[in-house]
Amino acid sequence: MEPSILAQQTVNGLVLGTSYGLIAIGYTMVYGIIGMINFAHGEIYMVSAYLTAIFLAVLASFGITSVPFTLVVVLAATICVTALHGWFLERIAYRPLRNSTRLAPLITAIGLSLVLQNYVRLSQGARSQGIPTLLQGSFAIPIDSHGNLIRITHVQTLIVIVALLSMAVLTFIMHRTSLGRACRATEQDRIMASLLGIDTDRVIAIVFIIGAAMAAIAGVLVSLNYGSFDFHIGFVTGIKAFTAAVLGGIGSLPGAMLGGLILGLAESFFAGFVNSDYKDVFAFSLLVLILIFRPSGLLGQPQITKV
């Protein structure tokens, strides 16, 4: 095994894993706070990919060509509108079910993801859509003396940097601000939190907004990276991100990122060194194995059952 190939596969896995991790955060936060698997979250990511392309097209029609400016504006606009989607869905579809059975919101989420997928398909057409290449070029890093090198594109670098930054910001919010405290309190005991004067409905709404915003960051960066998307991408990515969230321990923020990275690396190494036909089989088997030995995921808190 050549070191350059090994290094390149590690890079591939890390970049893929980071994008899984960003989306997994949405799953993990919503699960942590209301104990619900938000299956529509993958579709939120898909919507954000479309929004990216649309805002890019709008900016281009104004004749704006400055790449940093475009990037910042598109990122900000996409985050805002996607977050609004997250909030809106919570308001109309999940809040009415707040005190109902555990499975009812799950079914609503499945229904919502069908609705979102088909709404986008009917509005934008079933074609693949593309994004013009904004950042071209890559860093070439020599690995050994034979001239073997690994390539990391600028967009891939950007993905990792932005993901780390947003993780840092999110961790700060959750641990150092009053909003974060309210979130954690609601997570632990919703009734008690509301007795103490926390508007839990508002907190839950904010969690949906944060989750959607993280999915939007992933949506912008990943679409820039692959250059194309269609209305179907939410499903496959959503399942993988959900797997990542559970792998890391659902409810735990660093767990989501860790789960994403492990999943990304596992897929990349298995596809690269064994067989890409069976990479998903390997990824899911790994998940089952890890959960057998650590039933609450890698960083999850074991559930304490009270009698």
Binding site: I5, Q8, Q9, N12, G13, V15, L16, V222, Y226, S228, F229, H232, I233, F235, V236, E267, S268, F269, A271, G272, F273, N275, S276, D277, K279, D280
Partner: peptide, 18 residues
């Protein structure tokens, strides 16, 4: 080898091709 329909990331496969 085969890749999975619906996915977008084939970097691992490309590195293998390399």
């Amino acid at each position: 080898e085969g890749l999975t329909r619906g996915e977008k990331d084939f970097n691992a496969l490309v590195t293998k091709l390399k």
